[in-house]
Design a protein around this nucleic acid. Structure first.
Length: 461
RNA sequence: UCCGGAGUAGCUCAAUGGUAGAGCGGGUGGCUGUUAACCACUAGGCUGGGGGUUCGAGUCCCUCCUCCGGAGCCA
C-alpha cells in the first residue's frame, strides 16, 4: 500500500493525467464537513501547499467514524480523481475507501480557526501543521537552496567555518560561552586550560574572519551557517540563534561587493517567486498584501545607494520630527533607516562610507582618513538586512587600527597573517537569512520564520 | 537592559468595586454539494503568582513572573 501512494503535488502539476483515475493518497485531516449521507475532508499530505478535497458517502462502512474525525487525524484514501469545474477547487477525490490510520486527540490545540502567532509560538512543535507555517518553512527551504544555487553557479566555494571559536568578540556582539567545565563545581577563577578544547571558547558570532583566509585560496568563497548572539535583544528582528550568509570575494572593492549583494538578492527573490508560487500567493493574500509586486519591482529596478554623509544630509533637511536628530559621526537610528528605505527611496538602499569610529576594525579606510568602505543594505519593513565592507588589506593600517581599538595581536595573529603573506583587495558581506525570509514572506517577526526560535527566555523544544 | 501595553474558558476577547460572559473550537443531534459550511442543544473558570486595601477585588495598591510592541545592540 505504502509504495502505491501518490502525492497531491502531482495532481496539481498535471491534473489531466489523473482524471477519472483511481488514486491513493495519505495525509492529515485539515477539516471535515458532513451532512446526513455524505461529507467532505480537506486532506493535506505535505507534498505541496495545497490540500485536496475528499468526498465521502454513507456507502462507506466507517462513514460515522469519518464524520467524527478531528483535525490532524491521519488517513489513507483510495478514490477517483474527478474534475470540478464549477467549484473552488479544480478537482476532488471521490473516496471508495478511507482507512483511518490514527485519529487525533480532540484536545489538539490546532483548531479550525485563526490562531495568533503568539499562541502558535508556544506550540512550535505543532506550528508546521498550519497554512502559514507550512508556507513559511517551505519557502525557507527553497530560499536556502536558492542561495547555494546562486553562489555555486558563480564558482564560489562553500566553506564551513567553525561554530565553536576562541576568537573573542570582533565587535559583532556578546557571545555565548561554550564550556565543558561544570559551573556548579568550579571555583573562580576558572582554569580554562582544563577545558576540553584547551582554552576559553564561544559560539561564533560571524564566520567572516576565518572565511577571509579561504578567500586567499579559492578567490570567491561563502559561508552559510548558524550564528549566535548573546545580546538581550527583544525585538521582532533579532534572535539569539540565526543563520547568516557571508560571501568573501578576492580582488574586489566595495562596488563589486554591492553588485554581488544586489545580484544575489534579485536572484533569490526570482527563484522563490518561480518555485513557491502557491506559498507566495498565500503571503500576498493573508500576510502582506502586495508582497509579490514589491519583490517583482525590486527585481526590475536598481537598488539605490547613498553615502553616509549624503544620508545624514537628507535626514537633516527631511523636515521630519525625529526623536533623535541625525548627526554626522553618530549611528543612524532605526527611525532614520526607515525614513530612508521606506519614504525617500521606497526600495532597498545601500548606505556606504560610514565614519571609521562607528565601524569594525577590519574595514578599509578611505582617503579622507575619516570614513571606511562599509555598506549596509536597508530594506523597507525589515531594516538592515546586509552589512558588509571592503576589507583593510594594508598591513600597517590594519595593525594601527587594531592597536587603536585595543585588540590583542596574539589572538588575531592568524588573521593578520592573511595580509602578511600576500595581501590583496577583498570584500564581503553578511546577509541575515531570516531577515531576507521576512522580507520575502512579509512575516513581521523573526520568531515566526525560525522553526524553533531561540530568543531571550526562550529555548523550549 | 530601558520605555509602553497586555495576562479572564482550549483559542480570540468582553465584563461601573457587588451572581464571570460572548464568538470560535470541543461534545450531542439535525441537514443531499460543502469549502471560514449551516441550524439547535450542551459541557467547559483558583480571572499569571504572591501580598495588601475593602463588608466585598477580574476590577484599586505593592511586588514578582511571562508575553507583545517601541528603543538600543545588529544580521
Amino acid at each position: 500500500m505504502i509504495g502505491q501512494k501518490q502525492l497531491i503535488r502531482h495532481f496539481y502539476e498535471n491534473p489531466p493525467a489523473f482524471e477519472k483515475q483511481t488514486v491513493h493518497v495519505s495525509g492529515w485531516v485539515r477539516t471535515v464537513r458532513d451532512s446526513r449521507t455524505f461529507g467532505f475532508i480537506e486532506l493535506h499530505d505535505g507534498s505541496c501547499f495545497q490540500n485536496v478535497q475528499i468526498v465521502f458517502g454513507d456507502q462507506l462502512g466507517n462513514f460515522r467514524e469519518i464524520t467524527k474525525l478531528t483535525i490532524g487525524s491521519s488517513l489513507n484514501v483510495t478514490g477517483t480523481l474527478v474534475p470540478t469545474p464549477d467549484a473552488k477547487q479544480p478537482f476532488e477525490i471521490q473516496a471508495s475507501d478511507i482507512d483511518i490510520v490514527s485519529p487525533a486527540s480532540q484536545e489538539n490545540p490546532i483548531q479550525k480557526k485563526r490562531h495568533s502567532f503568539e499562541f502558535l509560538r508556544t506550540i512550535a512543535h505543532l506550528r508546521p501543521r498550519t497554512n502559514t507555517f507550512n508556507a513559511v518553512f517551505r519557502v525557507r527551504s527553497i530560499l536556502a537552496y536558492a542561495i547555494h544555487k546562486f553562489f555555486n553557479e558563480r564558482g564560489f566555494v562553500y566553506v564551513h567555518t567553525p561554530i565553536i571559536t576562541s576568537v573573542d568578540a570582533e565587535g559583532a556582539g556578546e557571545m555565548f560561552q561554550v564550556t565543558t567545565l561544570d559551573p556548579d563545581k568550579i571555583k573562580p577563577p576558572a582554569d580554562y586550560a582544563r577545558e576540553l578544547l584547551g582554552r576559553k571558547t564561544f559560539l561564533t558570532v560571524s564566520g567572516q574572519l576565518p572565511v577571509e583566509a579561504f578567500c586567499m585560496g579559492f578567490r570567491n568563497v561563502y559561508t552559510f551557517g548558524p550564528t549566535f548572539r548573546a545580546e538581550n535583544s527583544n525585538t521582532p528582528r533579532h534572535a539569539s540563534e540565526f543563520w547568516m550568509i557571508e560571501p568573501e570575494i578576492a580582488f574586489a572593492d566595495l562596488e563589486d561587493d554591492m553588485k554581488l549583494a544586489e545580484d544575489m538578492m534579485k536572484f533569490i527573490f526570482t527563484h522563490v517567486l518561480e518555485n513557491a508560487p502557491d506559498e507566495m500567493q498565500f503571503f500576498d493574500r493573508f500576510i502582506e498584501p502586495g508582497v509579490i509586486e514589491r519583490l517583482e519591482k525590486v527585481i526590475r529596478s536598481d537598488f539605490a545607494a547613498v553615502t553616509y554623509t549624503e544620508a545624514v544630509g537628507l535626514l537633516e533637511k527631511a523636515g521630519k520630527d525625529f526623536e533623535y536628530p541625525a548627526a554626522w559621526g553618530e549611528n543612524l537610528q532605526t527611525e532614520h533607516e526607515r525614513y530612508l528605505s521606506e519614504e525617500v527611496f521606497q526600495k532597498p538602499v545601500f548606505v556606504i562610507d560610514y565614519p571609521e569610529t562607528i565601524k569594525a576594525f577590519y574595514m578599509y579606510l578611505n582617503e579622507d582618513g575619516k570614513t571606511v568602505r562599509a555598506m549596509d543594505l536597508l530594506v523597507p519593513g525589515v531594516g538592515e538586512i546586509i552589512g558588509g565592507s571592503q576589507r583593510e588589506d594594508r598591513f600597517d593600517l590594519l595593525l594601527e587600527r587594531m592597536k587603536k581599538d585595543g585588540m590583542s595581536e596574539t589572538v588575531y595573529d592568524w588573521y593578520v597573517d592573511v595580509r602578511r603573506f600576500g595581501s590583496f583587495p577583498h570584500a564581503g558581506f553578511g546577509l541575515g537569512f531570516e531577515r531576507a525570509l521576512m522580507y520575502i514572506t512579509g512575516m513581521k517577526n523573526i520568531r515566526d520564520v525560525i522553526p524553533y526560535p531561540r530568543t531571550p527566555n526562550q529555548a523550549a523544544f
